[in-house]
Design a protein around this nucleic acid. Structure first.
Lengths: 224, 224
DNA sequence: CTGTATCCATGGCGATACTG
DNA sequence: CAGTATCGCCATGGATACAG
């Protein structure tokens, strides 16, 4: 860990946190991931060796507590780690307001589905099993089709047809759905523009924005 | 600038902010520094080449506005940059609470004096010129003696005797004064323990804690 | 004073393969 | 599933000197 040679608390914090990927791992832990490969899903472009290294660093500085669970390990934030929520939130708010341009390489369908799996507002969905068939119109075929299954408060995401009756189909450009999820665009606008198309009963077409919702940070006000 | 390939606002923010030194430069700009060598005083261990590079990066992403002022340049935060105050504050709060251990190399008397120069509560000082002669008992002779001159709301820090009549002398270990300044220890405790010794009229001995005060973050509550 | 230019070593980190 | 092991590049950034 490189040092700054400053007693300033900001510098001392950055000695721990400024290394590449570190705060994204913390973000995943804050979102509730506890196991190695679960963490990997949230930072897929990070090599496993580096993730292991970061977890060891975070454990050493007391941000993460590692527990051995008979062979496998689990990683949980300590009190110190949980308090990084304030830092992560400030970064997210700032990033949403001021770093709006997304490159093509930022648009990863796996990450979007993983994020949705964790944060879909299941309480808005019907009690009965509900299945959305999602199709990204502008994505390489192997990652273009997804199924969202909500049943009894549980969300499952499949990249193959699970075989259940489909409640509705959703067809959209990946960028459009990412923008709506982040709150860069609104659901009504995206539907009106025709960039997100819902194929199904009119009731579902009306409810879909509430079912899918938006990420937590979406409501952050944007600069005028 | 290395990318993460994620649309997450935290990741997009960190692409801009996670490089070494970047947020410390922003901190200096938030504290009001505007010129190159003024910034350098706040990040003395950073090479000038790297500082120039970081300033260019920050300008490119719209955090800093550079102005040409007839030969020299000044650097001012944009609206986007000013909003990084929330990030810096969250980092400082967390760092103060959880990264308490300071190594010897973190104890730089120049940085302490530079910080004090900017943030001394001059409104607490007498109207008439007041001079404190500071001596660090445990620091290499060339950086051990400092004079703080407060006059008409202006603070001057000298590393040589400015020749004015000295109101009082303060003798202390560098670490002790840093700890008090950060709020890791209280003024009463430091004086009582004898680690900070004030040599002067009893009125000054009473007033000194209010004159020097503590850094802004010092009041952050510490973990039990 | 305000930077720029150059050089160089380090090690961070990405890629890949592999193991219990 | 949960990591380790290894390799090698190249970019980061530290140091120093110098220029306008």
């Amino acid at each position: 860990m490189a040092t700054y040679g400053q007693f300033c608390p900001v510098a001392k914090a950055m000695e721990v946190l400024d290394e590449r990927w570190t705060l994204l791992v913390v973000r995943e832990l804050l979102y509730g991931s506890t196991h190695f490969n679960e963490l990997r899903r949230g930072v897929p472009k990070m090599s496993p060796a580096l993730l292991a290294k970061r977890l060891r660093s975070l454990e050493r500085v007391g941000v993460v507590q590692r527990r051995d669970e008979g062979g496998r390990s689990s990683y949980v934030l300590s009190q110190s780690g949980r308090e990084l929520a304030g830092v992560v939130e400030a970064l997210g708010t700032w990033g949403l307001r001021w770093i709006g341009e997304l490159g093509e390489e930022d648009l990863d369908p796996h990450l979007l589905m993983w994020d949705m799996k964790r944060k879909l507002p299941v309480q808005e969905w019907p009690r009965a099993r509900t299945v959305l068939a999602l199709r990204f119109t502008d994505v390489t075929p192997t990652s273009a089709r997804w199924w969202i299954v909500v049943n009894g408060g549980e969300v499952d995401i499949c990249d193959f047809d699970p075989g259940f009756e489909v409640t509705a189909g959703v067809s959209t450009g990946l960028r459009s759905l990412v923008q709506v999820w982040r709150g860069d665009r609104s659901w009504p606008e995206a539907l009106r523009s025709g960039e997100v198309v819902v194929d199904g009963p009119s009731l579902v077409r009306r409810e879909l924005p509430r079912w899918l919702g938006q990420s937590e940070l979406a409501s952050v006000p944007r600069p005028a």
